[in-house]
């Protein structure tokens, strides 16, 4: 344990790892069979940076977020691997009170369904106080004061939103309250699972801007799960691309967007007109997202949708390998993939 997690390789010499994920495998057991939603995921979350996790629906982003909180619940189960935090050790080993005080004060979370993340029968302010009580906050007024400040920053009237019941707020307001509830305990890690899906574009960019400035002020380590490559390009430092429960590409945002090496990354980037600026070149990704219960045991998971496919892809699953300092790709053909 201790604060000396090894950095696998990073262009940034000062980079420190906040959270080190090794061989993380999460298996779901359902009526349609047993399948891994995460398959040997290896990942370093760099301290004080914003790491974006992207990938199609069902690729395992939320499951990864839950696993980071040791919150994978039935019918899912962590079957292998570890999630080490610099000062807390392997959180998958935390139980009871230790786990409870890890969630909240250490990692503040906004959930994917954050519009429904508040108890409908209690006023918002009361729920913030419940949060304080759960984590032994001595001065509840200070906590409310903090919440009021955050509300004001998010362009909401604090006296109104804190005395309201959740149903009296709009979907976007509830989502911003979710962000406030994640920040109010002053965690050092912020885990955001599609935190702005209910917001209009203007509010979304305003809220992201606030998240970024708080991230900087408090030296937070931020993990941002999103579908939106525009958001990724705008605010993240690192990017992790997931496909069918595997990390297929990972690197600094700048480098990865400039020179994507995995065919899947290239495909999702091509699918977005607003990055390339050329509507004619925008092409949706062909084929459908993989059905995790039907994934063949051998070979590359992406091959059925890949235009660079070679016989080797059917036989051997590519492993995540360094192609550049801090840039990793899981593809047999990455060397050939150049514009």
């Amino acid at each position: 344990m201790g604060a000396d997690l090894k950095v696998i390789g990073n262009a940034d010499q000062d980079a420190q790892v906040e959270c080190q994920i090794r061989d993380l495998t999460v298996t779901f057991t359902t009526d349609s069979g047993e399948f891994p939603a995460l398959n040997h995921v290896n990942l370093d979350i760099i301290k004080s940076k914003i790491t974006a996790i992207v990938g199609e629906s069902g690729s395992g982003k939320s499951t990864l977020g839950l696993a980071i909180l040791n919150g994978v619940a039935f019918p899912g189960k962590v079957t292998e691997g570890s999630v080490d935090f610099a000062e807390h050790g392997n959180v998958l080993k935390l139980r009871g009170k230790a786990l409870r005080h890890f969630r909240g004060p250490v990692v503040g979370t906004v959930f994917q369904a954050s519009q429904n993340a508040m108890n409908p029968l209690a006023r918002v302010g009361k729920q913030i106080l419940d949060l304080g009580r759960s984590h032994h906050y001595k001065d509840p007024r200070k906590l409310l004061h903090e919440a009021e400040n955050l509300a004001r920053r998010m362009a909401m009237d604090p006296s109104r939103v804190l005395t309201a019941y959740p149903h009296q707020l709009s979907g976007g307001m509830r989502q911003r309250m979710g962000i406030i509830m994640a920040l109010v305990l002053k965690p050092k890690v912020l885990l955001l699972d599609e935190p702005t899906t209910a917001l209009d574009l203007l509010t979304q960019s305003a809220v992201l801007e606030i998240i970024r400035s708080i991230h900087r002020e408090r030296h937070l380590t931020t993990i941002l799960i999103t579908h939106d490559m525009g958001v990724v390009a705008e605010i993240s430092d690192y990017i992790v691309v997931m496909y069918a429960g595997r990390v297929v590409e990972q690197g600094s945002t700048h480098e990865t967007l400039r020179d994507p090496r995995h065919p899947y990354t290239r495909a999702i980037l091509r699918a977005i007109p607003r990055l390339t600026g050329d509507l004619n070149r925008a092409r949706p990704l062909e084929g459908s997202p993989p059905d995790l219960t039907q994934i063949p045991a051998t070979g590359c998971v992406f091959r059925s949708r890949c235009s660079y496919r070679v016989p080797q892809c059917d036989l051997v699953a590519p492993i995540l390998e360094s192609v550049d300092t801090g840039h990793f790709v899981a593809c047999h053909q990455e060397g050939l993939i150049r514009d």
């Binding site: 919150g71 619940a73 979370t109 959930f111 369904a113 954050s114 508040m118 759960s134 994640a182």
Partner: peptide
């Protein structure tokens, strides 16, 4: 199975407060 109960758990809310949320709802 409701989201806010899971959310409370992942925010580290104590079991007794969570039970109150559950019971009232």
């Amino acid at each position: 199975g409701d989201d806010y109960i899971l959310a409370a758990e992942l925010r580290g809310v104590t079991p007794s407060i969570r039970l109150r949320y559950i019971a009232r709802n």
